[in-house]
Design a protein around this nucleic acid. Structure first.
Lengths: 339, 339
DNA sequence: CCCAGCTAAGATAGCGCTAACAATGCAGGA
DNA sequence: TCCTGCATTGTTAGCGCTATCTTAGCTGGG
């Protein structure tokens, strides 16, 4: 930096200011400094800045699993949004362990992050305390709840699943099943919403619930489907915890010569791009994962601004049921079954 | 740190040593210091360390696109392997722009990274020069070539595609087509390998090549398939640039009542988990993306060790053709076509 | 018994930057 | 004219750690 300062004929601090707070330097000097920076290929030293200013340009992101494809879209959104800011992302995963989450928080907080992004609302008491005491904005993503630590962006998994069950009921299905991989807290809340709506219509049965602790996959979806129709052959519609499972169920249904949607309704969750182009196209619940990542960063960067108003601290991105052929029982069939 | 030192009754530098180079501190003091660290919840300040030691624990990873799902698996492997090391990952994407890659390299190099991971072998001249002058290990991933900057882990896309075309030929297909999304340099090399093998057998025709600059997706696969059979109805087997495209082609084939594998062979690339469980199961080329991420970090960390031998600087992870039903033309059909 | 040759711990300085305060220059009012 | 007040630039010190040099203590060969 002193080389740049020498070349521009100013002191080091002026270069620092020209870079950090350009409005405090006259335009002429600013231009001169910019020229020197360019000429020398000067790149500021992040560590030195962090040490001197007790501030870093790192946003810590804590997710439970990198494997889980749901987070891939969120991360895409995060990286996309962060690209237009001076911030950097530091990603860590807890492998669904609360202990791990606490440790990671401690490590991140030790580095004075510019902000933190954490997943969900089920932090341990210790983690929660750490977050509330954090000297930086915190965004909870993936779902919304009544008691945000600070900022929050997501949607109600309970509501989304309830609405989906109601969609199946409206389409005339009466023996609803639930296929679930890796029942994390959000999956659990989806299940609760599903059960609530199905039970209210007398369409729920514990025997039509098949779950697994394994991570979600298309293969697992096929297995769960096979297990389901073996155990409960009377099922007439399936709500899958997510789209991988739904796709696997669809393939397995074909192998079992079960026709979708007439013999069996099928519905996924997340609305991956492929659901619309599958044959038949599969009904799914669109969630705004990419948007969620972008908003998380956007809100965080906004909160870093002194003059930001803290209204809209909780953003509900909602969901959309994309009704497709896989839950579109033909009229004749519907009538014959439910006259 | 001085608090820890005071509590353990030693000087700050001894704490530093106990943490960085424990073998230089007697076991008793080490234990005492560990106790103090634990008691005080001390977390070392990364920025201060970086500034003082001119070394960071950051490994820079540069990939062309976060959207591209191929890199998701690589990143999983990278994060998995880095978890057992003190290093952190800093991810950046070039959006397939060489200019961007140069800038990112300059930024990373300005921070004294512990290592760099870059994608492919098509760096610009400037980028190449920066990498060769880098004061840290560099790993090129995704493919292998004759002229590594330093370390390299990947496989030959040309060979993989050639072998796939030969697989199709062996199965009796004679009018091979190529569907390609986003033709980046590696896709291009795959295409070249495919053309080489197909041409040698007289099974290649430019009219059966349909590509797009759009990013890969299942939807795009369906579109490319539709375009292909419209343009070249005589096609009897398709090599898809990747599995998304293959899956889309499969769905679209069903809509066109084209039966796979008898009327049309279908083959993907990457062997995503779902290919084996699709109906029919789809032949694909297994590539070791997760392993590639792990090895990249593993090699990099190994190279950081003084005493490491630099044999095995280039690792070819190879590929495997997973022959499945989608290229398994029935015997009768094969004989009637090629008696 | 002495001292070279080692190991373990400490003292000092400085990494590259910015916070905080200081100094300078200049406009405009008394 | 002087002084106040603001805008702009400079000076100084220190962020938390580690490289480097130094010192202390200890071993063992001649």
């Amino acid at each position: 930096m002193s080389d740049v300062a020498a070349r521009a004929g100013v002191s080091a601090i002026t270069v620092s200011r020209a870079l950090r707070t350009p409005e405090k330097v006259t335009p002429e000097l600013r231009a001169e400094i910019a020229r020197a920076v360019d000429y020398l290929g000067y790149v500021p030293h992040a560590a030195a800045r962090a040490l001197a200013s007790k501030r870093t340009d790192v946003i810590g992101v804590i997710i439970p699993s990198i494997t889980n494809s749901v987070f891939a879209d969120v991360m895409r959104g995060i990286y996309a949004e962060v690209d237009s800011t001076p911030f950097k992302i530091q990603l860590a995963n807890t492998r669904y362990s609360p202990r791990m989450e606490e440790n990671l928080l401690r490590v991140f907080l030790g580095q004075n992050p510019a902000g933190l992004v954490v997943t969900g609302i089920d932090q341990s008491e210790t983690a929660r305390a750490l977050l509330e005491a954090a000297p930086c904005p915190v965004v909870q993503i993936m779902e919304i709840g009544d008691d945000p630590v600070d900022l929050m962006v997501g949607f109600s998994h309970h509501e989304a699943a309830r609405a989906t069950a109601e969609h199946l009921l409206k389409r005339g299905y009466r023996k609803l099943a639930f296929l679930g991989a890796r029942m994390d807290p959000r999956s659990q809340r989806r299940f609760n919403g599903f059960r609530e709506a199905a039970s209210a219509a007398g369409a729920f049965s514990e025997s039509r619930v098949v779950t697994s602790t394994s991570p979600s996959s298309v293969t697992l979806g096929a297995q769960l489907f096979a297990e389901l129709i073996d155990r409960a052959p009377d099922v007439d519609a399936i709500f899958c915890n997510n789209d991988d499972v739904a796709l696997g169920a669809m393939f397995e249904a074909r192998r079992h010569n079960v026709s979708i949607p007439d013999q069996m309704g099928l519905c996924g969750f997340n609305d991956l791009e492929m659901m619309a182009v599958a044959e038949p196209p599969i009904t799914s619940v669109r969630t705004f994962r990419y948007e969620m990542g972008r908003r998380a960063i956007n809100m965080l960067v906004g909160a870093l601004d002194e003059k930001a108003d803290r209204t809209n601290a909780v953003v509900d991105l909602g969901f959309e049921i994309r009704a497709r052929q896989s839950t579109n029982r033909s009229t004749i069939e519907r009538h014959s079954l439910h006259p």
